[in-house]
Nucleic acid binder design. Structure first.
Lengths: 113, 113
DNA sequence: ACTTGACTTGGAGTACGCTCGAAGTTTTAT
DNA sequence: ATAAAACTTCGAGCGTACTCCAAGTCAAGT
């Protein structure tokens, strides 16, 4: 799969895919005979997971830490779990904060009505 | 109250308070005899509300729209309510998205354990 | 054969929301 | 009286996460 197709299937642009590779979020892509990036299906699962981390506001530098641990192999499991657990706790707090905001908005909107 | 005290009491820096005034989020401050900003207590409630909008990820340009409507007076009530209602809907969707992310994180973390 | 489109790299530019520095004046405390 | 702290404006700089352009190569379709 070339970068254009991966772009379509992943929902990212080719620009962004190259950017992610450049900064280390994606592993260096294999190349075909003419030097174009040639992706394996499996990259889609990784991109999807990155998308989840992003959707929950994990900053790129932390995704990068996770990506590096992942690249280092099995032995980094504990660290990875800890990283995700810390992130999860942050997400929980963020949800709580948004719920408070929601209540205040509801009250304010009601006051206008 | 001068800007330093307002900074302390609002949790924003003096720099940020001036920045907010510059872009129109805060009304032009009254000045004392020597030209320094002289704030009224009431500004704190407005800043707090702005903080809530910010905490729920409203972009500054929308806060600005709200601030402008507010400055135009009573007749803009309906528009303001609509703006807040649209924002509230966005917050609801964001919470839902984060909750999905949370489930996925929980599953992933469990898989590490 | 030729046009169109996809790909390559490197680097510059963008949007958001601050954040800070410079240079100068005024206020406050000792 | 003097030194330190707080205020002023204007404009530049920063961190994050892209986003895009230039200039060139390569591939596929008619």
């Amino acid at each position: 799969m070339k970068i254009g197709e991966l772009a379509k299937r992943s929902g990212l642009t080719a620009h962004t895919l190259r950017y992610y590779e450049r900064i280390g979020l994606l592993p260096p892509a294999a190349r075909d005979v003419s030097g174009n990036r040639d992706y394996d299906e499996s990259i889609l699962r990784w991109i999807e997971f990155l998308g989840r981390l992003k959707a929950t506001d994990m900053p790129i530098r932390n995704m990068l830490r996770y990506a590096e641990l992942r690249a280092r192999g099995e032995s980094t499991g504990t660290e990875r779990r800890e990283l995700l657990a810390a992130h999860r706790d942050g997400v929980r707090m963020r949800i709580a904060e948004l719920q408070i905001g929601l209540q205040i908005l509801d009250a304010k909107i009601a006051a206008y009505g």
